[in-house]
Write a protein that binds this DNA or RNA. Structure first.
Length: 862
RNA sequence: GGGCGCUUAGCUCAGUUGGUUAGAGCAUCUCGUUUACACCGAGAGGGUCGGGGGUUCGAGUCCCUCAGCGCCCACCA
């Protein structure tokens, strides 16, 4: 038998992926004779290709999945991808702008969505191919997409059900408005930038002040132009109490302070007392005026606005009074709700001032600010203007400032849903590992903030609501009656709700349970118009564990594989995703979605920064696989996946000319071309844009951290190669362990211990321990000791047969144990071993399984 | 501002309930073409375990404190 001296992973992997697939090794089906084990993949975003972070996530899942499969469970790993709402739409829109200089409005909704589908198809293919090449043993026939018809049906059924329970409602909310892209962006797509600005003090006149009362009140703001939409000025309802509280806090801080801090704390306390002495009387007077219903006159506009008492006005800040602009500031919005203030929107979607701004209409924000300040100064109502550093929110997509903008949004009411998800973790029906992540989950849910689920986007699940606004009571009643007459209404496919609008008119809303063009036509014929918005991406992600199994249909798969067994994911989406899956699973199916959650570390680059394509430090698993092989990538990642540490992974460019590695630095990681420091020849990077750069060969981005693992894979290959070269004349026979020589009994005993350790480590998600244990055993004990000591026995005719049998058995077991981590090399060796020693094992030897992948997991006898 | 984590060899990381001389891989140096493997083997150098204090017969490990790094959440008229 001739076996190459190196494990040729590229050929082997391609063949094995096909062979496993052809044999249906990854496929799972309902099997009453077996216990189920199921995992749903955290669906990668179709925004772009996978990097090593995904490599780690999916390697760990595959290790668990392959182990469980070998342990005899009917094992399902559900694959799929996520449409990733705004992220994907933004990528496609940006390309549209760059390549064709068009906005989404130039294309229109339908065409843009079509373009995004094309993008999705391209990246979904790429992502699935990356996963396959990593060796992920997903049931590919079940591959889902969060926007596919199966997931869409679940989304519709969920929304319909929440609508029926009145757990979903419509309300106003301030959204982060990107005036350039003219869309709302989510909080995590907003970054703050500190800029130089001013803090303007402005005076508002009191209307008909009583004797002794001030003529005007002072407020301060960094955004004076928003005064045009002010609807109140607030003052604290109990300044004395507020100061008392501050004082007692400062005192307790002072008592607890170290010698070093004492001076600072004392100064802080003194400042509070000084301010109280100066301000308390006038603030209490203003408070009394507020309670007395005194009105102020808004300068420049002339509108009368009330002075109100509200906790938001902090006596220790500014002048102690704060202007309230409910439609353009999140906190003011809350005040507006509490005090029942009107919400005046002064902006057009493009960020210019609208008709509410009177003579300032049509100006941009900076223009309006300048004019308002000038005009206030002219009428002598402008006070001090201080310089100040201001943190200004910017849109990550357009890099322009965000405007808080009041818009109609749909919300999911969280109180009972959140409580159910908290209970599931509190009483350990859902266990989170490592345990320290429980706190974040419980704290976040504990706030029970309603979940805004609508997004002003085109890419996503459209909200299944049709509505007519501005109806008279009679017209509304009539419309409701007509809706109820639809045959689908009787069939439970239609729900309607009538609401009073702000201006006393009525709104009728209709929710449809399923996609149905005919029915939609009928509804639209009644004058109802479909909501333009789509749902938050996490809405469909939250359903992933049951939607992928066919819910709301009562499928056999759902019954068998749900709840899934475990969820393996990254820590940054514990709240956004994990928590929501728990509450939606409980609401929809009535059962938790998974009983265990394992949170794995993150992969950072050599500088300690998270990997991302936009930084240029993202490593494509395919590049690592090409250079080191899929087993080395998997083993290397598993070896580093410890419980407490993030994985720091220095990254290098591989020169395509001389194959030498060049360290990546913050400087060179964004260059379009690099001259190799070893061979002097240039190569291009992902940033190449000029034609002359693009003509160069592209250098892969890899990490030399995988060398150790690659060497290990090769070591194993060669140890097996040695064994196989010595298996000529192999025969099988029952082995009496007690009569074996010491070295055999020793290795068997060690094997048993290692089997137990590896099994337990994987059970506890201690992947670094499992791989470390196997590394040491295979290299130091099996290769360095046992193989060496077997050499003379293999050339001694009297001992040869026994040595072969034990060797075959040990190798067999080692391959099984290593298979979940390094599936390709083990399966390749297994095939050779099957040819050389088809019948093997201690006790009663038996014919080996065709694939190690579906062979039985070893059981330890210690 | 609140919470969590981290700091051990040049680099990336282990180090169980405190217990001999603190480990591994890579890198470095020396030697080695013994028929599985140079992606190998034998050996060497390299650490006051971030700083300081404490508990203890004994601290990398427990407590306090200072400093630095990272992440999550909240907020700043």
């Amino acid at each position: 038998m001739t076996i190459p001296i190196r494990f040729e992973h590229a050929e082997a992997a391609a063949e094995l992926i096909e062979a496993w697939d052809a044999a249906g090794c990854n496929q799972a089906s309902v099997n009453p004779n077996k216990k189920p084990f199921s995992i749903v993949i955290p669906p990668p975003n179709v925004t772009g290709a996978l990097h090593l972070g995904h490599g780690l996530n999916n390697t760990l899942q595959d290790i668990v999945v392959r182990t469980k499969r070998m342990q005899g469970f009917e094992t399902l790993w559900m694959p799929g991808t996520d449409h990733a709402g705004i992220a994907t739409q933004a990528v496609v829109e940006r390309r549209l702008k760059e390549l064709e200089n068009k906005s989404r409005h130039d294309l229109g909704r339908e065409q843009l969505v079509e373009r995004i589908w094309a993008w999705k198809d391209q990246y979904e293919t790429r992502i699935l191919n990356q996963l396959k090449r990593m060796g992920c043993s997903c049931d590919w026939q079940r591959t889902r997409f969060t926007l596919d018809p199966i997931c869409a049906a679940a989304v519709r059924a969920t929304f319909f059900d929440l609508f029926r329970q009145s757990l979903v409602y419509r309300g106003k909310r301030l959204v982060n408005w990107d005036t350039f892209l003219q869309t709302a962006v989510s909080d995590d797509e907003v970054f703050n930038e500190t800029k130089k600005g001013h803090f303007y003090h402005i005076y508002y006149n009191v209307i008909a002040p009583k004797p002794g009362e001030p003529r005007r009140v002072e407020i301060a703001t960094t955004r004076p132009e928003t005064m045009l939409a002010d609807t109140a000025v607030a003052v604290h309802p109990d300044p004395a109490a507020a100061f008392a509280k501050l004082e007692s806090e400062a005192i307790s801080k002072l008592t607890a302070a170290t010698e070093k801090e004492k001076a600072d704390c004392q100064a802080e306390l003194d400042a509070i007392l000084k301010r109280r002495d100066e301000m308390l009387v006038s603030l209490e007077q203003l408070r009394d005026m507020a309670l007395d219903g005194r009105m102020l006159q808004l300068p420049l506009v002339g509108r009368e606005i009330p002075l109100v008492a509200d906790l938001w006005a902090k006596p220790e800040m500014g002048s102690g009074c704060v202007k309230i602009t409910p439609a353009h500031d999140p906190n003011d919005y809350e005040v507006g709700l509490r005090c029942g203030l009107p919400m005046l929107n002064m902006l057009n979607p493009d960020g210019t001032v609208n008709a509410e701004g009177g003579k300032y209409e049509g100006l941009t924000i900076p223009q309006a600010r300048k004019r308002v300040v000038e005009d206030l100064e002219a009428i002598d109502q402008l006070g001090d203007v201080e310089d100040r550093e201001i943190e200004l929110p910017h849109s990550d997509r357009s890099k322009t400032p965000i405007e808080p903008y009041l818009a109609d949004q749909w919300f999911v009411k969280m109180d009972t849903l959140a409580q159910s998800a908290m209970d599931a973790v509190s009483d350990e029906r859902v266990k989170i590992f490592p345990e320290r992540y429980r706190k974040g989950y419980l704290d976040w849910l504990g706030e029970k903030r309603d979940w805004p689920v609508s997004r002003q986007l085109w890419w996503g699940h459209r909200i299944p609501i049709w509505a007519t606004h501005g109806l008279t009571e009679v017209a509304a009643t009539d419309l409701v009656a007509r809706v109820r007459m639809l045959p689908a209404h009787a069939a439970g496919e239609v729900l309607e709700r009538e609401e009073a609008g702000e201006d006393g008119t009525r709104t009728v809303m209709v929710c449809l349970r399923q996609e149905n063009e005919t029915l939609e036509g009928e509804v639209e014929a009644l004058g109802l118009v479909r909501d333009c918005d789509v749902l938050d991406t996490w809405f469909s992600s939250a359903l992933w564990p049951h939607s992928t199994l066919g819910w709301p249909e009562k499928t056999a798969e759902l019954d068998y594989f749900y709840p899934t067994s475990t969820l393996i994911t990254s820590r940054d989406i514990i709240t956004l995703w994990v928590a929501r899956m728990v509450l939606m699973g409980l609401n929809n199916v009535g059962k938790i979605p998974f009983s265990e959650v394992f949170i794995h570390p993150k992969i950072l680059d050599g500088q300690g920064e998270t990997m991302s394509k936009s930084k240029g430090n993202g490593v494509d698993p395919i590049d690592v696989i090409d250079k080191f092989g899929p087993d080395a990538m998997r083993f290397g990642l598993a070896r580093l996946a410890t419980e407490t540490q993030d994985v720091r992974m220095p990254v290098q460019y591989e020169c395509p000319n001389c194959e030498k590695l060049i360290d990546q630095t913050p400087k060179n990681r964004s260059l379009p071309r690099i001259d190799c420091q070893h061979c002097g020849k240039p190569f291009s990077t992902q940033w190449a844009e000029l034609d002359e750069d693009k003509l160069l060969i592209k250098g892969a981005v890899v990490s030399d951290r995988f060398e150790t693992a690659r060497n290990f894979v090769n070591k194993l290959w060669n140890a097996a190669r040695f064994a196989l070269m010595n298996f000529e004349g192999y025969t099988s026979e029952k082995i009496d362990v007690a009569s074996l020589p010491l070295e055999d009994r020793w290795i068997l005993s060690r094997l048993s211990t290692v089997t137990r350790q590896v099994t337990e480590a994987i059970e506890r998600y201690q992947f670094a321990d499992a791989s470390g244990c196997l590394y040491n055993f295979a290299w130091d004990e099996f290769c360095s000791f046992y193989v060496e000591i077997a050499k003379p026995r293999l050339s001694d005719e009297t001992q040869r047969a026994t040595a072969q049998r034990v060797m075959a058995h040990v190798l067999d077991t080692l391959l099984r144990l290593l298979h979940p981590i390094t599936p390709f090399v083990t399966e390749s060796i297994w095939k050779h071993l099957g040819e050389a020693a088809p019948i093997r094992g201690l006790g009663e030897p038996a014919a080996a399984n065709a694939f190690v992948m579906t062979a039985a997991w070893p059981v330890s006898d210690t």
